[in-house]
Design a protein around this nucleic acid. Structure first.
Lengths: 198, 198, 198, 198
DNA sequence: TGCTAATCGAGACGGTACGTCTAGTCTTTTT
DNA sequence: AAAAAGACTAGACGTACCGTCTCGATTAGCA
């Protein structure tokens, strides 16, 4: 682990030391994994990475920037492609919940959202990041449109937004262990609607 | 305002002084309004309320507890009853967004969610609070069921969850100025579904 | 002990309850014995005595006042009368050191002196108390004068002062275990002087 | 003064900033001079020195440590060398009393002794310091021995102890204005003894 | 006998200080 | 030129006491 390799790490001269950068991001991830957002501080990361605080501030001007880099290093959840939009969305959410539950990713992303509530730059970074993810999620809808499964005039962004909102809410409420049926029902309501068929 | 009336406020004996409690909650609200979550500290509240820190800690063991009380003192958004579930839900969201935008409530609730990401008691309190609100929102669905507008086998909780998720996501992403059309589209997708009608 | 008997002790009408006073002084003594001056606070005494703080403040306006009462309740060291002034003074110091070492008295008196360094009333009370003790110690010198052992023109107060100073210094420096020989030598220097006899 | 020069003082890199250390010790001295031991707190010193509390705690782990440094920065009283031990000791005491009376030293040393009654480290530091001063005072006795003025078998340490005890007692009892005659009498009793010459 | 007044335990109150932690900045030294 | 290291000011954290205040109860002594 980074925090061990870091012992006695020295400057390598007038250029960025990738060992340090790695050690810092790994330390940040480790801190988040072990102590959660509550224990996540630049101090703690610097201690763990055996780095000076200014070294961290030089490359990541805020906690948020570091959080984003940590999150982006995590493996992301891919969007399934089963040929059925309901299965795609439900499968995606199931995988995402599992990913957030079983890796530090969940902690990292929760922290990022929390940070964005008091830090302007975190908010901006999160917005930027979300935009990218939204279009990624939107692919599933677009494919369904192409298959004729979804009406052409549906706003892909809004649907992706609903799906992301459902995921966020469960992450932020510690409800990532939601059972399969509930996830599927939520997806079905979006896909089929809740109106009584006359 | 509390911070003025507070001058010279003393103990009223071996029981809680409601004047102090009021001054503290009002000060907390004022701090959140003026400095946001970033500037919200027990110290700041104590200073503003002209109260001792121990007085705050005596009654609100954590920042979260204070946030919750502040939030609950705010006027809540009522659920409309237009006779049409889509109008009800869209109207509710519109009102909720306006409320969060135009009063300190939004800031308070954002802060509470953020706090819950690092504070166990805040998480528990938020879960408890959410449960209550979910059933409140669910009333709109129940009424629609009673009218025959919504299928009887629809899970009210899941629909309320979707609506709340949409609201949370917009609050946490600084997108409370979402336009009417987008809100209505999102609600329609839930109510009518996105599937192409054959 | 006071702290047990205190359970349920109440007012006995419009006059001072001697049970309470006793319980408080005993509690103060117990706190000093067990936690020393560092742990001696009005809060701690009130807790231990199951008394209200105002009850303490009503009768003892300062920590110093309470300390003085506690000290005066202690048994005092008597001045020996052996017929020899050197033996008297050495014996007195030996007994005093033992008393301070083996009872709470030492802790109490140390505390009183310490308190007097930052509390005016404690300083005054200590001065008053010291005056009394000085004349008490002076008796040994007066008796020696009467026996013709000590020159008539010797200032009794100054000699008593030297003896008290020696005692204070050892108390305040945690050197109450000074051996017999050193005490005797110090006394001899005062009685016989250090000058070389030609 | 330190508290003015301190404005805008910053770190001077990865090493101790002597300006800060100076400002802190000077502030401590000023606080003791102006508010006495009662008003002497780390908070007050930090405020006065415009220093962060952790900076103080980094270098002086306790109030006692800071007090000692303040005391040691004061000019010390030299031991006179008149060729007569009685004049030496009386002169030394007279100078010491004046020094304690007219400079903050007296307040500082009083505080240190008081602090030592509740703080173990202060007690240890005071003992260490006292040892050094005792041998310093002892020089006057040693010189008298060399001159044949004092008997060779006299224990220098005990005599020095008697002298220090007399000084402490007057300091702690607010009797630094003791008149010349009383000081000289006390010294004479030690040097010549109080016994009636037959 | 019934009222007044003082006392009691209790504990809340506005404050100050504690000693620790983190934020974000600064500078020297090393490579 | 940049990394490493650690000091710096600043201020929040949650706790312990300070000395004051009011409460509700209890009871002695005066009316």
């Amino acid at each position: 682990m980074g925090e061990v390799a870091a012992r006695g790490r020295k400057s390598i001269g007038a250029k960025r030391n990738p060992e340090s950068a790695d050690a810092i991001v790994e330390a940040a991830e480790a801190v988040l994994r072990e102590a959660g957002y509550a224990g996540f501080s630049i101090e703690a990361v610097a201690r763990r990475a055996r780095a000076g605080k200014p070294t961290i501030y030089r490359w990541w001007p805020s906690k948020a920037a570091l959080l984003i880099e940590v999150y982006q290093r995590q493996k992301h959840v891919e969007t399934p492609d089963t040929g059925n939009v309901e299965d795609d969305l439900a499968g995606f959410l199931r995988n995402l919940f599992a990913h957030w539950r079983d890796t530090p990713s969940g902690n990292v992303f929760r922290s990022l959202i929390a940070e964005a509530q008091s830090d302007e730059t975190a908010a901006a970074a999160l917005a930027e990041y979300s935009k990218g993810r939204r279009s990624h999620t939107g692919l599933m809808i677009e494919r369904a449109k192409a298959r004729g499964e979804v009406a052409a005039n549906v706003d892909t962004g809004i649907v992706a937004d609903l799906v992301a909102a459902y995921a966020w809410r469960h992450l932020l409420s510690n409800r990532l262990d939601e059972d399969e049926a509930a996830i599927r029902a939520a997806v079905r309501y979006v896909v089929r609607g809740i109106a009584r068929v006359p």
